[in-house]
Design a binder for these strands. Structure first.
Lengths: 145, 145
DNA sequence: GCACTAATACTCGGATAAATGCTGTCCGAGTTATCATGG
DNA sequence: CCATGATAACTCGGACAGCATTTATCCGAGTATTAGTGC
């Protein structure tokens, strides 16, 4: 499993937004970048993708910024990854292309799919609320109910 | 989860070798390529990587070729993937680099690792012997030389 | 005090460019079985 | 029938080019808050 920098930045920003879920003011991009060390001009486009996916919402103008569009219990790392990397990516493009001619490729295509589903399920089980709670809580103690 | 063409080709070749485990003669690269539609000159380098990882063995010279170095029950798709893509790849390079400065990154790094471990475990549970059996079981029309 | 204007700070979104890795090819070298040839 | 050499087929391994994706950066435009100015 290899993550692109985009997904990593998106997750960092999303967790940062989840931590400030109580505040009425939207979070500015610069605020995230200065706290986490993320290139600002790059994060702009990433947040736009998260907005297009309905994960974050924004208010323009001065005193504008971003906030989560849904409660953090309903956002998983799998949502973020799919929002940024796009849903169109096939798991094993070469194998699926060869599948009609080769039974080996057919068998392998389903095997790759199984592993990919396991990975997606693992990512779907990690919610933003859990991650935000881990940031607040000290050590391994989870305060989130 | 996105697979590189190298890993896909390597898996196809490995299953093809597993299917012919009973034959005393080694399997030639051309034999795999003609049966499965894999570029030959590319597969050479892939098989060299599998050999370096101890997954396949080769005999040089005329009537040479490749065979599995271990019984197919002891080779998993995870072995093949790590042999080809290298073990040095970090799961989340950006996040781990930012971890010392950011608690958010630290929490995320472990979360990514959990998902990666789930994927690896899924791949490690799929053995070459299973895949070869699936090819035979459904009445494949491939001939043995 | 009020209306209006300018400045400011932020998001929006496309264009663009450097960097990196992936994909596949080419070529020469080394190794071994097979076959032809001569004794 | 046997020994020897030529030939062919195959693996070995690095070098390299073309292509696509990633990773940003830049710039102009839109939008809302805020400060300032004149009446």
């Amino acid at each position: 499993m290899r993550l692109s920098a985009k997904v990593e930045y998106a997750a960092i920003a999303a967790v940062e937004l989840a931590r400030r879920i109580g505040s009425p003011d939207p979070v500015r991009i610069r605020g995230i970048c200065e706290a986490q060390g993320v290139p600002a001009r790059f994060l702009v486009h990433i947040l736009l993708q998260l907005k297009a996916a309905g994960i974050v919402a924004s208010t323009r103008g001065a005193a504008g910024g971003y906030r989560l569009a849904r409660p953090p219990e309903e956002i998983t790392l799998d949502d973020i990854r799919r929002a940024v990397e796009g849903p169109g990516a096939l798991v094993a493009p070469v194998t699926t292309e060869l599948a009609p001619r080769s039974r080996v490729a057919t068998v392998l295509a389903t095997a790759w799919q199984e592993a990919s589903d396991a990975e997606s399920a693992a990512l779907a089980s990690i919610k933003l609320s859990d991650l935000a709670a881990r940031c607040r809580g000290a050590g391994d103690t989870m305060y989130y109910i």
